[in-house]
Nucleic acid binder design. Structure first.
Lengths: 205, 205
DNA sequence: GGTATATTGTGACAATTTTCACAATTTAAA
DNA sequence: TTTAAATTGTGAAAATTGTCACAATATACC
């Protein structure tokens, strides 16, 4: 119960449902969500059942009910504060990324070794890594984004965890070693693109 | 056979093995890879067996043999050309991302509506979207990265496919609709981070 | 009101994926 | 040379995940 795949599907549903809502719909059928997301209608229904969302036979599901259930599942009622390590290409893109706001995700501070970047004005204050304990403590942060170069990723990771971080989104191409209580999600841009390349050459015709 | 999960694990192995090689190792045991990647030793062995890599009982596997097999599996002998749509935050980060080179992935051109961005000098030439057919044709490109805003993603996607693109890495928070012969990988930064937040609050104590 | 139709909800089943356990085999050491 | 130890390779079992099919039921229409 409650596998990562399930959690991921919920987020996929939310995306499509938000879209359908904007377009003016208020109710949906499982097969409509299926068509929109590529997930089978039966699985959609099972997921919604697990979420405790009830549909009406022949009437479908109310979009708002599903959305509320999903948002509630993810605890979207509180603001989620995040710190970021590494203001390189990816770090800056993340800091400027607008969509986080809708999800009540807020990047409260960034860390970077480079003093020039600390002085420069970004949308988020940039501190030296030494400030990490203070910041994490002050803002009650649990989650960090690692966007530093591969060679320093493990060190940065260790320091973050020492400061109390328990969830990490990692962009560095490294298999980070973390204690059991820390959840880690690796975003491997290279690997992702490589898989696309691989599968696109495999597709028939 | 040959599930996406398997393909993904191969890339994970490659990452760890490259690292172990740099550190000076030439041979590994399955349990060593397991410790490095978090994938169970038995599964590592099964994957290597499927890859047709042979180990020596009591002697382990040769790192170079595994790496060659993986690189060969992904067809790393040819240069993989990719185009990018959307020179916003993420698009620029992708264009500047250095790691693609090691994988023989080359971003040959980018597209953006904004004429200012077309004039500006990036590491990659920026064209208006109309040039898409020419460029894709000229460079024999199969794969594209979509980094445009959500509202225009489907339109851009359709045009790319019309030009012959058959693999897409999509950063726009949209469930794109594509024909069967097109492979799509969605990189949902928001969702990814949201999952980290979710799991990090769930972890015990 | 009655009947046909559409859709949910779910138990049984199928498929896939992973783990387990151990025989086979190699190497090292005694 | 024999024995002990370590590690692969793999068939069988377990677990997980998703699909199928259909009863239950609500709705719409005649």
């Amino acid at each position: 119960m409650e596998s990562t795949a399930y959690t991921k599907r919920l987020l996929t549903y939310r995306l499509s449902l938000s879209h359908l809502k904007e377009v003016g719909l208020t109710d949906v059928f499982s097969y409509l969500i299926a068509g929109e997301t590529g997930i089978s209608a039966a699985l959609v229904r099972k997921d919604l059942a697990q979420l405790k969302v009830k549909g009406k036979r022949r009437g479908g599901y109310e979009i708002d009910v599903i959305l509320d259930a999903i948002n509630n599942y993810f605890g979207d009622n509180t603001i989620n504060r995040v710190v970021l390590a590494g203001m390189g290409n990816i770090g800056r893109a993340i800091v400027n990324y607008k969509n986080f706001e809708n999800r009540r995700i807020k990047i409260v501070a960034a860390f970077d070794l480079d003093p020039a970047k600390q002085r420069k004005k970004y949308d988020v204050p940039v501190y030296p890594m030494e400030k990490c304990p203070d910041i994490v403590d002050k803002y009650r942060v649990n989650v960090a984004v690692i966007a530093v170069p591969a060679f320093s990723a493990q060190t940065v990771c260790d320091r973050l965890i020492q400061c109390g971080i328990r969830g990490i989104m990692n962009f560095a191409p490294v298999n980070l070693k973390v204690p059991d209580h820390v959840y880690i999600s690796n975003v491997r841009l290279c690997d992702e693109l490589q898989q696309v390349i691989y599968h696109s050459t495999k597709t028939n015709q």
